[in-house]
Amino acid sequence: MDVSRRKFIQISGATAAGVAVSHLGFDLRPVKAHAQMLKTQYAKETTTICCYCGVGCGAIVHTSRRGDGRVINIEGDPEHVINRGALCSKGSALKQLTENTNRLTEPMYRAPGASEWRQVSWDWAIDQIARRVKETRDAAFEVKNDKGQTVNRTTAIASVGSAAMDNEECWLYQALLRAMGLVYVEHQARI
């Protein structure tokens, strides 16, 4: 045994001498009972696929059925054939991605030259964004290019993103961007 580890006999013997009180006989039952009840016992269970890398690991999300309805636990899904319950450090921290006080929870707006954000409503934000798109697009729409070929596009607006969206969202987004006439359409796969 390591020497420093063995020192405890002397040290503790010396410091603790004379205050010996036995605590045997303490009722352990409540402690044990509590330890054996899972925090996820009454939670709603849904499956998800991890949002980080491209392995596509399955996870189980435990959401409280009471109170605020927030996430109690996220852990690997043992029935997922790729990860069989395993996750990496990031996957194991999925709960903290979700239940995170740093998250954005309201639309925000920063006016030209302003030094602060200001909270705005969804309706206002969507309306204003659509108006910006229309103004920019209409002012800079190219029906024909320099060679006189029909192009029906605008190069005054660009978009990047996103591999963080679901397939269905990606599909909708590219459809909308193309209908808007954008050709500057890129995302994570390019970098």
Binding site: M1, D2, F8, I9, S12, A17, V19, V21, H23
Partner: peptide, 29 residues
């Protein structure tokens, strides 16, 4: 858990050491 210099295994060492320690280690005030 390393071996003691006299070759006594940790296991044996524990058995010898634990008793006096248990008696000596007490509840704090």
């Amino acid at each position: 858990a390393s071996r003691t210099p006299v070759g006594v295994t940790r296991h044996m060492a524990l058995r010898k050491m634990v008793r006096p320690f248990a008696a000596a280690l007490s509840r704090l005030g």
